[in-house]
Design a protein around this nucleic acid. Sequence first.
RNA 1: CGGGAUGUAGCGCAGCCCGGUAGCGCGCUUCGUUCGGGACGAAGAGGCCGCAGGUUCGAAUCCUGUCAUCCCGACCA
Length: 490
Amino acid sequence: MSKGITSRETDYSQWYNELVVKADLAEHSAVRGCMVIKPYGYAIWEKMQAALDKMFKDTGHSNAYFPLFIPKSFFSKEASHVEGFATECAVVTHYRLKNDGNGQIVVDEAAKLEEELIVRPTSETIIWNTYRGWIESYRDLPILVNQWANVVRWEMRTRLFLRTAEFLWQEGHTAHATEEEAVAEANKMLEVYADFAENWMALPVVRGRKSENERFAGALDTLCIEALMQDGKALQAGTSHFLGQNFAKAFDVKFTSKEGKLDYVWATSWGVSTRLLGALIMAHSDDQGLVLPPQLAPIQVVIVPIYKQDAEKQAIGDLADRVMTELKAKGVSVKYDDRDTQRPGFKFAEWELKGVPVRIAIGARDMENGTVELARRDTQHKETVAQSGLADRVERLLADMQRDIYAKALAFRDSHTVEVDSYDEFKAVLDGPGGFVSAHWDGTVETEQLIKEETKATIRCIPLNNKQEAGVCIRTGKPSAQRVLFAKAY
RNA sequence: CGGGAUGUAGCGCAGCCCGGUAGCGCGCUUCGUUCGGGACGAAGAGGCCGCAGGUUCGAAUCCUGUCAUCCCGACCA
């Protein structure tokens, strides 16, 4: 492992790439655009999954699994959906290979599929085709199903976690008897995502609604949570769609209501992906490496012994054992790093790089004084504290850190969210500090497109519960009823 | 898919212009000394120079083709 990583100031993008690789989260694979998520990175994803999965179950959802492959014909059934995904689909055309006689393995042209299969970029079509068989009556509703899966979107340019050709995610697909219920579901799940982002990821998010231009292909309404990264660019962290009856109509999913009327089913879908790892990394980390909020850190506390002779190591180990037992009893995950192949300074740097929230160093001096050195990753603050009551102290520290990391990110976002009333100001902010820019917009797709072409900024969202305020569009001068949030985005 | 660049040891690179059979740093292995912020010394291991042709007595180096990757755009969770 080479020393240090590129600083954020030098090159934010390179900082991110190096951090992901050097912190052992993921690496590029032999397949273009596809990453290998390494054990440490996957451990964070597992913690995210566990927390989200519980939240989904607590809100009444169940997990199921649908096929990786989708018949091509399914895609053309919902017009705007196919348009949204057609240009980035991996297509399976054959089902067999053969030896060409020259020692080469080639596709067996004789084994061409009758109908091509699409590797799912998202599962609305296969799921709604399935739901047709599950739903006849209002008694069959609602269906509240979630799927943990991988999907493939053949992106032109990829970046580890932020945009990969294959990624892991969850997709919830619900079916309802009424529009109101579906709308409420979409809102409820957006709130679940916001709750998760804020309380687990320590990531403040804006809850909002996408403009028509940014709406999911096939949705009537797309709700989202938007987060701000340290370079002033926004990142969409999760979406929740109200799909209306679009997919029910496309796949002929009808039900008989209590009143005996036949009607199409109302739908939602919602998802978050491994992209959340990208958000987590970019929101909190520093030039020393990863900074993980305690709630999602695979290792919350690392204990590093500092010793010269075996006798010292033995005594320190005994103390470490006692501390670990106490911490584990409190549900804190601890690692005792007693490798004698690395020196303490190396270990300090390594665990900082990997973002372990709390480090306890114990040396001969501490053994004499009845102390340990306690260091927190987020502020890099170190202090010498008494061994007695250590576990309680660490438990409090972890809770404090979770709050502090959130507060720091919130303060950053607040200081990078500005209202502007002219196009010049708008451009000045985007070219300068970046961040969220709250500005009036005339509400048309054309103007949004124009602003995007001229500034690379897009409407990230129209915040929910946005205050209504008369004004004029910064670009066209036409009347506007409210401000919307613009930003350059990932 | 347009523009630019790069493929040489596990990683990062030099060598190429001016052809003579490959080198540096980190990492790795062994031994010793070290160990409170990325240790030091000594001795080792590791490369058909992306791939395929061509020119030449001789190619990492020159020529042609090809594949791949990265960066900047357009597209996107």
